[in-house]
Amino acid sequence: MRKYLVLASIVLTTAVVAYVTTYLGALGPLGLDTRYLAKLFLANTYNPAHRELTAMSPEAVTSIVWDFRGIDTLYETVVFYMAIIAALAIYRGVSYSNVRRGSGLSLIVKVVTKLLIPINIAVAVSIAAHGHLTPGGGFQAGAALAVVSVLLAVVYSAHSFVELGVNLSRAVALRSAGLLAIALVVFTPIVISALTGTQAYLMQNYVKVDSAFSFPAHVQSQLISGTLIWFNLAEFLAVSFGFFIIFMLLSLREEVVREWVGKEDEH
């Protein structure tokens, strides 16, 4: 009975939303044209003529993500960071050293994976380093590199992390280093403006009409788009080691985990 009630209410809601979105046109005319703000972004994403309005990156999405609406992405990174911290808090006290060696999958898969990993790292770095020029960026590259952490845990075993020397504290340290690099770039304009007595904004990239502060857009005629490349590389570091932490925790055997869960007294 309850099932049908739920079904009926969902069908009703979906129908109402469908009506509102198509017949009332709440989403605007679909498929025809883009909004004015979109045109503003597109026209100014790479526009050397107007330095006060451009992000100097041909990639409109990356320039919105890390420059126009950079604060969103900063806090998005915080959400991802906090999720891992919360997971680490659940697993606090676990030591990764007494993981026993597993046997993993067959030789063919192991060798292929071994060859794949260097290629994959090259691809991921390329995605991160061209984030401001072609589709891609820090998170995309980190997610592409996550395949390494997954395959290490699955194809070899949880013990392979120990063999590679990626223990939990190192992963945490490298990830925090990436995040602090992001924070450094975020705070640099304010600190410099406070030291020199000029105007600058948090997360500022280039000159604005009321601020002369600017990161360099080019190095030797190579476009690096100011802060974007630094954000991308730092985010790449942070995200890829974030995934390492996640899969290191997930691949722990249950016997190892149950040793320490339930030992402390309840509150």
């Binding site: 597993g102 999958l105 395949v147 997954v150 699955v154 194809v155 997930l250 055997r253």
Partner: peptide, 18 residues
């Protein structure tokens, strides 16, 4: 490829981290 590997591992071992 990764999806193949997960499922193969799951079918072979039951638990993934081993």
């Amino acid at each position: 490829y990764a999806l193949d590997i997960y499922v193969a591992k799951y079918l072979e071992r039951g638990e993934m981290g081993d």
